[in-house]
């Protein structure tokens, strides 16, 4: 059997998720044995050529050029999987979706007039069909490994979609919300990080985005009871997954 051709692509992002692939040191040789890495600019200088059995796409769509490129990549790909918060929910750069682009440009860049950008930063799925999404800022290597194995086996990856709380309990971490009234996003956030922050005695920051059906409003009501203002509540979800959390909130009917 021929090794499936895999391509790793990048749009507006920090490259952290691609680096995560390279950080899979123990598994890299296995990946190369199982997959033909045909395009991966972070790791090789192979030029873009041909079609791909599987494309891993990092980054959000932030410029007009990217909008066209992502369609081209989709056309070259049998399957397309997004990796990371930028590709799956627009990234931290999607904060401008709720603000003025010129104001943001001026704040961030010394010569804002040279910046060509769309007024929004949006996930890949807003532009082309996405077969599967790996969430996280950055993605989890175990989840990626599971996805790569599942792809070869033709099965659904065993990547859980439930809340972070479920894994806090697996790890016997006392609930930071209940025992200390910390503003923890765990109850509305997809698990996947290995309970990184609560393990270090810090509340969840929502790196893995809203779980399906997240009851954001109920959690915010709770934060407000604990003394947070509405603005402070919004700041908690306005990070690398701002677009997904806000969308989930609207879908909830608010």
């Amino acid at each position: 059997m021929k090794r499936p051709r895999i391509g790793v692509f990048k749009f507006a992002s920090c490259d952290g998720c691609q680096l995560t692939i390279l950080n899979m040191e123990e598994e890299l040789l296995d990946i190369i044995e199982l997959y033909d890495i045909a395009y991966f600019r972070e790791a090789t200088d192979k030029p873009l050529r041909g079609e791909f059995d599987l494309s891993l796409v990092e980054g959000s769509i932030s410029t007009d050029r990217q909008r066209k490129e992502v369609v081209e990549i989709r056309e070259r790909s049998r399957h397309l999987i997004t990796i990371g918060a930028c590709a799956t929910s627009g990234g931290v750069q999607a904060l401008r979706n709720w603000a003025s682009l010129p104001a943001y440009k001026k704040t961030v860049y010394p010569s804002p007039e040279t910046i060509e950008a769309l007024s929004t930063s949006t996930p890949i799925s807003d532009h082309v069909y996405v077969d599967y999404e790996l969430w996280g800022c950055p993605i989890d290597t175990d989840a990626l490994a599971e996805t790569l194995v599942s792809f070869l086996m033709g099965k659904r990856p065993a990547v859980p979609v439930y809340s972070l709380c479920m894994d806090c309990k697996v790890k016997a971490i006392a609930c930071l919300l209940v025992s200390r009234a910390e503003p923890c996003l765990g109850p509305i956030t997809k698990t996947g990080c290995g309970v990184l922050c609560p393990s270090l005695d810090r509340p969840c920051y929502g790196c893995f985005g809203p779980m399906e059906g997240a009851n954001i409003e109920s959690l915010m009501e709770l934060f407000k009871k604990n003394g947070l203002s509405h603005k402070e509540c919004m700041l908690l979800i306005d990070k690398m997954n701002t677009y997904a959390y806000r969308k989930a909130r609207i879908e909830q009917g608010l």
Binding site: C165, M166, K169, P187, G213, A214, N215, S218, L219, E221
Partner: peptide, 8 residues
């Protein structure tokens, strides 16, 4: 409406 579905 109140249920977070967190599973706790």
């Amino acid at each position: 409406k109140r249920d977070l579905e967190c599973g706790n």
